[in-house]
Structure formats: structure tokens, C-alpha cells
């Protein structure tokens, strides 16, 4: 964890010093980053809004990772789940609270799990590599979502590529203390669900027999097989679980804030989730904090464009990428340490 944080700050410092070339004062940029992520209740609300899906996606990647799988498919899983929740909300608009959002969430989790299951089944039964499969499933999900949103349930009142609105009974808004505490921001009580889910995943992984079996498959699949733990089944279940976790994003996106499926709503949550899991070293509780950090970074960097003249949208992406690079390079770090000791 120490090294990971060191990597984070190394990347941050490097990225900030790059702003010198753009003629900016790095300290000033840092202060903007900080202020626009935490500066006001409004800013904090937005940061937490970005944090919520990142927690879910980070957990999705982490759970798969504990089973020895690299889930690049959180993006596709959350797309399918969100689409499913929206479709339900559009098709049955008259359902009422709290049954409606609960049902929508259930459907979303199921569909997310199904999307994970496809990859898991192909991995276990056909031996297809999950990285390739999940990447391809991302594309398929994006295609299905576009078609469904634009041709089956488009928003009749807008030219935007977005679906019609779900029934009002699906929205958490009126019952949502978090949303009330952060007015004008899309953050919702999905945040609480995210934190509770993370704790639940921690219990599952470290306290239950199934969690032990799942981790065993991840540490050493051969040993698991010998111990009578079915590597195939565990891997399938793990990817279903990962898909369902990514599917929780529908709660914060549809029921929590927008009430519809907007194409491009995800700021690459599924992929940033990989960085979150990495940063947290796949620890479920660590994921909460890592997601908060990445959420803050996303919010902070998106305001750089607004606050300065030289740091554009693209430059702020460079800053984010450098920080992720810094985080992932902690492996390199320990490697170079080892070399130095050898000499």
C-alpha cells in the first residue's frame, strides 16, 4: 500500500511538473485539482458521484482477480446491466417505489452476471482467454445498447442519443438523504450501497468458505483442483459475481441520477475500475478509498480545462494517465529495489 501511494504521488508530481511546459505553475494546478475535487459541497458531491461506479467496477475487477481472472469486461457488464434496468423502467413505468428500483436492480444484477457468465463459461469450458472475450463482449454490449436505445426506446423529446425516461417510481431522489445533502449533484445513496457492497465482498472473500475456495483458485488453480475445488465452476461464478458487481452501476446511473440510458454515460468506469483495483491491490475496502481518489482525480482534472487557459481536455487526460502509470509502476519499483540489494 505504501509503495502504491508512493507511485500515485510520483505520477502526480511528474504530471504536475509537465504543466510547467504549458506555462502553468504546478502548485497552482495542484490547488485547482484539490479545490475542484473537494472545494465545496457541490464539488465533493460530484467527486462522490464519480466515486460510486468506480467502487463497483473496482470490486468487479478485484473479485475476478482473486479468482485469477483479469476482467476487462466491467464496462460491457455495466452497460448491459444499466440497459436492462432502463428497459424495465421504460417498459413498466407504473411500478412504484420501493418495489420498482429494487426489481430494476435485481434485473440489472442478473443481466450483468449473465454478461460475466458468458466470459466465464467460455473460459472454463472452451479455454478462451477471458481478456480477449471480455474485450469483445464490451464491443457487443456497446452495439446492443446503441441499437436498443436509438431504435427500441429512444427519447422522443431529444436528439441526444439517449433512451426514454424510466417511470418516476424508479427514482430514488425523493427518498435519498445523500442526494439531498449534495443538492444539484447527481450523487445518490448508491454510494452507501457501494460502501456496504465493498464490506460484503470483503466478508465473502475472507470469511466464507466459498471465498476461501475462490481465492485458492486464484492463488494456485492446480492446487485447488487437487483439493477437490472445481476451478471451472469457481471461475464461472467469479465472473458472474464480477458482472453483477459491475451491474450495480445501474443503481447510481439510472435510479440514482439520470433516470435514462445516455449513450456514453460511463466515463470509462469499467476501465478506470482496473486502475482502482490495482491501486487497492484488490482489497475490497481499499477499493473504496482508491475509487474516491480516482473519482477526485477525474473531477479535479475535468475542471482544469475550465480554470486555466492552457490545460485542455487532452492535457488533463495526460495527467490522469500519468498518475495511473505511476500507480501501476510500483511493481517496477520493488523490482529495482531488489536489484539494488543484490549488488
Amino acid at each position: 500500500m505504501k509503495k502504491t501511494l508512493a507511485g500515485f504521488f510520483l505520477g502526480l508530481i511528474f504530471a504536475l511538473s509537465l504543466t510547467l511546459f504549458a506555462g502553468e505553475n504546478p502548485l497552482y494546478i495542484a490547488s485547482i485539482l484539490f479545490k475542484s475535487a473537494f472545494g465545496s459541497r457541490y464539488d465533493l458531491g460530484l467527486t462522490l458521484f464519480y466515486t460510486t461506479p468506480l467502487v463497483f467496477c473496482g470490486l468487479s475487477v478485484a473479485v475476478a482477480f482473486h479468482a485469477g481472472l483479469f476482467n476487462i469486461g466491467a464496462e460491457g457488464q455495466l452497460t448491459m446491466a444499466t440497459l436492462a434496468a432502463t428497459a424495465l423502467g421504460v417498459a413498466l413505468p407504473s411500478l412504484s417505489f420501493p418495489f420498482a428500483p429494487l426489481l430494476a436492480l435485481m434485473v440489472a444484477l442478473l443481466v450483468g452476471a449473465l454478461w460475466g457468465f458468458i466470459a466465464g463459461w467460455l473460459k472454463a469450458v472452451r479455454g478462451s482467454h477471458e481478456v480477449v472475450v471480455t474485450i469483445m463482449l464490451n464491443f457487443i454490449a456497446a452495439g446492443i445498447a446503441s441499437w436498443f436505445v436509438l431504435h427500441v426506446m429512444p427519447n422522443p423529446n431529444s436528439q441526444n442519443p439517449e433512451s426514454a425516461l424510466v417511470g418516476s417510481g424508479y427514482m430514488l431522489k425523493d427518498y435519498d438523504p445523500i442526494a439531498r445533502f449534495f443538492p444539484d449533484t447527481p450523487v445518490s445513496m448508491a454510494l452507501i450501497v457501494a460502501i456496504m457492497t465493498a464490506i460484503g465482498v470483503w466478508v465473502l472473500l475472507w470469511k466464507t468458505t466459498f471465498g476461501f475456495e475462490l481465492r485458492t483458485v486464484g492463488y494456485n488453480p492446480d492446487a485447488a483442483n487437487r483439493a477437490g475445488i472445481s476451478e471451472k465452476n469457481i471461475k464461472i461464478i467469479a465472473l458472474c459475481l464480477a458482472g453483477a458487481l459491475a451491474g450495480f452501476v445501474s443503481l447510481s446511473e439510472v435510479m440514482g441520477s439520470s433516470g435514462q440510458f445516455k449513450i456514453g454515460f460511463s466515463a470509462d468506469y469499467g476501465f478506470v475500475g482496473i486502475a482502482v483495483a490495482l491501486l487497492a491491490r484488490n482489497h475490497p475496502i481499499g477499493v473504496i478509498f482508491a475509487a474516491f481518489l480516482m473519482g477526485a482525480l477525474h473531477k479535479g482534472a475535468s475542471d482544469l480545462d475550465l480554470e486555466t487557459t492552457t490545460i485542455t481536455r487532452d492535457f488533463s487526460k495526460i495527467i490522469q494517465s500519468l498518475i495511473i502509470l505511476g500507480v501501476t509502476s510500483h511493481g517496477l519499483w520493488s523490482w529495482s529495489n531488489r536489484r539494488r540489494k543484490d549488488k
Binding site: 456514453g264 466515463a267 480545462d305 487557459t309 485542455t312 481536455r313
Partner: peptide, 13 residues
């Protein structure tokens, strides 16, 4: 002062 939108949710912000 001009800005470019990065994602859908960013526009409103």
C-alpha cells in the same frame, strides 16, 4: 473562456 465537453455528464457541470 472556452471548454470542450469530455463526457455526457460533464456538460451540465
Amino acid at each position: 473562456k472556452y471548454v470542450e465537453a469530455s463526457d455526457v455528464t460533464a456538460l451540465e457541470n
